[in-house]
């Protein structure tokens, strides 16, 4: 099969999987079926709590299981990434609940931005550094910079958005390179991992651009995207 078709197929599958899991979560908890008006704050809190619990659980699981993989350090870095992110979310949620207002620039931003550095390290440890950078890797990185620039122009906070944009763009470039090297037989199993990274970056950008219920939906999709990142890496470097 052509590599482009494979990539498109993986993207569609990833999106379908994410939407499907989200649908199951919603219907199982009767949030949609009840038909009642959902309080945004409550729903956001529920999603974040699910996110925090699942991320910490996955993180510990990954560290324990990392010894069974071909690249334990890359797996541990990914575990650190999700635990760092979960810690940031925990801080944000606690602040919101205790101080009755969301924090402006806080330790949560430090954790969320810092968590990108772990996954960038993880990508480089998988061996993508020694290969050529395809044009679409630059395109992904450029697209993120442009979107973040637009967000800065619309909402301000230029420095904060710049701090977000730098690791996101680097990660997008890494993921693009990863997709490129997945043509090789050696890296073929890592293709879903790199696609998952691109999809989660896309959800993250959409979270920046959305408000209210749409934000919650993208937050939930992003959570599932990150979980699929973890599972695909584990499968990709597993024996």
């Amino acid at each position: 099969m052509n590599i482009n078709k494979k990539i498109t197929g993986s993207c569609v599958l990833n999106l379908a999987l994410d939407c499907n899991i989200l649908y199951v979560i919603f219907t199982k908890t009767n949030i949609i079926l009840k038909g009642s008006v959902i309080d945004f704050f409550v729903l956001e809190t529920v999603v974040t709590v699910i996110q925090i619990i699942s991320f910490f659980t996955l993180g510990f699981w990954l560290v324990i299981k990392s010894k069974d993989t071909k690249n334990p350090i890359a797996v541990c870095f990914l575990a650190m990434r999700i635990m760092c992110f979960a810690l940031g979310s925990l801080y944000y949620e606690l602040f919101y609940l205790l101080k009755k207002a969301p924090p402006y620039v806080s330790a949560a931003d430090v954790a969320w931005i810092g968590s990108f550095y772990f996954i960038i390290a993880s990508c480089y440890l998988l061996g993508i550094k020694s290969h050529k950078t395809p044009f679409y890797a630059y395109f992904f990185a450029g697209a993120i910079v442009v979107v973040m620039l637009i967000i800065s122009l619309l909402y301000g906070h230029f420095i904060l958005n710049l701090l977000w944009a730098i690791p996101m763009a680097v990660l997008a470039k890494c993921a693009g390179e990863g997709v490129y090297i997945s043509k090789n037989e050696e890296y073929k199993r890592l293709l879903p991992f790199f696609i998952s990274i691109i999809m989660s970056l896309f959800y993250e950008l959409m979270m920046f651009l959305s408000l209210g219920m749409v934000y919650v939906i993208f937050d939930a999709l992003w959570t599932v995207g990150i979980i699929s990142t973890v599972l695909t890496l584990y499968k990709g470097v597993g024996d």
Binding site: R81, C84, G88, A107, V110, G114, Y117, A121, L125
Partner: peptide, 26 residues
């Protein structure tokens, strides 16, 4: 992995800062 020193140090710093901040907040 020495070549990851700078990137990793930033990540570690983020982890410790957030943990400290959670404690101080509580």
């Amino acid at each position: 992995v020495k070549q990851m020193a700078a990137i990793g140090a930033l990540g570690i710093l983020a982890l410790t800062v957030t943990y400290h901040a959670v404690f101080n907040l509580l």
